Amino acid sequence: MSELPTTLHYTAEHEWLEDGAPSTVGITAQAAEALGDIVYLELPAVGSSVEAGAVVGEIESTKSVSELFSPVSGTVVEVNQAAVDDPSLVNSEPYGAGWLLKVDVTSTGPLLTAEEYAALSAG
């Protein structure tokens, strides 16, 4: 498993959140690795409202289809079109070019530190 960036927050559902205005959301390297080759992303439209803990999209790989959960509540202000066009970016750069969406956050759900996420993922 690749090194977890300590500047990010994580969820038990394997999403990450980078604080900002707007905040950036993606999936962890562990999730991308477990999914295998990602071939399709279904993400919410810009302007959509998202709720922390709610399903906001789907990630399809050669192995399975998984739901994407939002770590925050707010409004989607940007979707990573490059990742939609080339979903393999999520596999190759989950913490970089493979980010999924940006949200103007109104509240957050339960978030974990990198250390807490690593402990949860190891168990």
Rank of each mutant, 00 (worst) to 15 (best):
E93L: 02
G57M: 11
L89N: 01
H9A: 09
P71F: 11
Y10R: 06
P22V: 14
A97I: 09
T24P: 03
W99Y: 06
K63M: 13
S23M: 05
P110N: 14
A21T: 15
T106M: 03
G98D: 01
A97P: 04
S49G: 12
P94L: 01
E18C: 04
N80M: 05
E15V: 12
A54R: 03
E60S: 05
W99M: 03
P44L: 14
A45N: 10
S92N: 10
S92Q: 13
S66E: 14
A29T: 08
L89W: 04
S23E: 08
I59P: 00
V105G: 02
A45P: 00
S107Y: 11
P94R: 06
S66V: 07
V103A: 06
S64K: 12
K102G: 07
G36M: 09
V65R: 07
P22Y: 08
E42W: 04
D19C: 05
S64I: 12
T75M: 12
E115T: 13
N80H: 10
T11C: 12
A83T: 06
Q30S: 09
V56T: 05
S70I: 06
E42R: 11
P44G: 14
W16C: 02
L17S: 10
S66M: 05
G47H: 12
L101E: 00
D37P: 03
A52L: 13
P94Q: 11
I59E: 00
S70D: 02
